[in-house]
Design a protein around this nucleic acid. Structure first.
Lengths: 257, 257
DNA sequence: CTTGACTCTACCCTTACGTCATAGCCTACC
DNA sequence: GGTAGGCTATGACGTAAGGGTAGAGTCAAG
């Protein structure tokens, strides 16, 4: 009949002595006996219980759950494992979403010059074509993007460009008017879909299809960090910025992605 | 210039008032101003900062990290996002492992009769073939499994069965002698591989290939919950049980899975 | 002026221990 | 027998991100 002191158990199992103290205090793992001085001694049974504990702990069960699993025979291991499995799956799904969002964001940060591109377009880039602006932009975001962009705009023609601007303004206005609706509602998402179509015409062929979802989502984030919405004056509409961000994010996740 | 009280901000953003207090205390989000009575009032700028906070929080950044991201312009958003992405990927991988282990365990629990099967085999099932044992076993784990198992064993012949038992005993002895090595070491894993091959011969065709990894891993867990190892007497070898469990688990994860 | 709704600060609680601080215990060596 | 060094025990505080609550002050309406 072997006896193991705290240090032995710690070494054998890999947990810290403090952890053993803790498990003792919360009645998860009691030592086999205690000396008068209070020293803890464990037997083989306790070692094996510890193994079980560690097994379930690795599965991310809480200590409270583990105690129930081990102590209450009525506790249905199978059901709680199935239950736990569902929880883990949910966590995995969430992480996948996070990864996707993070990729969007990274892409957005990397290409924030392209976002600038869009902003400038929206402000009337066409007028400046062929002047000083061009040189600056070229060094900023590379020759090809610019040239493609310009070609697209030229194809559009001045009239076409202006009419797109009007469309965009109109749809934005409509969105503004329903900014209190849920971003995920059909009403909002319908308008967002139109918004997206217009933006795509601005992009022309300069944005590859597989990137459009990311960029569109990033565009939403842009509203929130845009100075025009940040200013603390009467015109600022932070709620609208947030609304647009959420709506566009949701759209790109559910419709484009 | 709009002012939002705590309740307004809470409603607009979806966080609790308590959370706003908290963010104030840790200097993550300070109100625009405070009245003499201490009431907090936020402006549009703060609302947008809160949006940013929530954005990063959704990505599972800690509040401390978020504060750095937002307050220190030197802080490289891109790098920390990439970094964070790696962490998330690691978490995902871990969850995948947990799911796999949990599946193993569930399978093991469901089929614990099959485990019993193995134990009985190991104890000398062959002798009892065709007697009372047979009826009992049939109701326990179904006709097909039994019959297949028996056929396999018969094919093996008494001599073959005994020789397998010797092989198993030998290899188990060897494993016992190196139970202080790391379960993941090549030395151990090499012997475990042989152990696995022997077990497979016991299984014959009665265990499908795609289930072998799960069952083998479950078999490891069996050592730990086996009464023979649980007894608190001089013969008990809990460390060996643990060792076998870990080694077999690792093997099934890396070699068979 | 009172009522009811709102807000403030401050403190304790949660998980699963890590990290001390302080004190008692045990054994070996002199 | 005394003591040094190593081991152990208890207790308290800290961690992250707030939840919950008490007790007290504040505000606007009737």
């Amino acid at each position: 009949m072997k006896n193991y002191g705290v240090k032995d158990v710690a070494k054998l199992s890999g947990v810290s002595i403090r952890t053993l103290h803790h498990y003792d205090k919360i009645d998860l793992l009691k030592p086999f006996n205690r000396t008068e001085a209070g020293y803890r001694y464990y037997g083989a049974k306790e070692l094996l219980r510890l193994q079980q504990i560690l097994f379930y702990k690795e599965l991310d069960f809480s200590l409270k759950e583990i105690r129930q699993l081990l102590d209450e025979p009525s506790f249905d291991r199978l059901t709680s494992l199935e239950h736990h499995k569902l929880a883990l799956k949910a966590r995995k799904k969430r992480i996948d979403q996070l990864l996707s969002t993070i990729d969007n964001t990274i892409y957005h940060l990397k290409k924030n010059t392209i976002m600038k591109n869009y902003k400038d377009l929206y402000k009337g880039l066409a007028k400046e074509m062929g002047t000083t602006y061009r040189k600056e932009a070229m060094t900023k975001w590379g020759k090809n993007t610019i040239e493609q962009s310009e070609k697209d705009l030229l194809k559009l023609g001045k009239a076409g460009f202006e009419s797109l601007k009007v469309e965009l303004a109109t749809i934005t206005e409509e969105l503004f008017s329903i900014r209190n609706e849920s971003p995920e509602s059909k009403k909002v998402q319908g308008l967002i879909a139109q918004h997206y179509q217009i933006i795509r015409q601005f992009w022309g062929t300069s944005v590859q299809k597989d990137k459009q979802a990311s960029i569109y989502a990033g565009l939403g984030q842009l509203y929130v960090s845009d100075d025009r919405y940040m200013a603390r004056d009467g015109e600022a509409q932070p709620e609208f910025a947030t609304f647009m961000q959420k709506s566009m994010q949701y759209f790109s996740n559910t419709q484009i992605g």
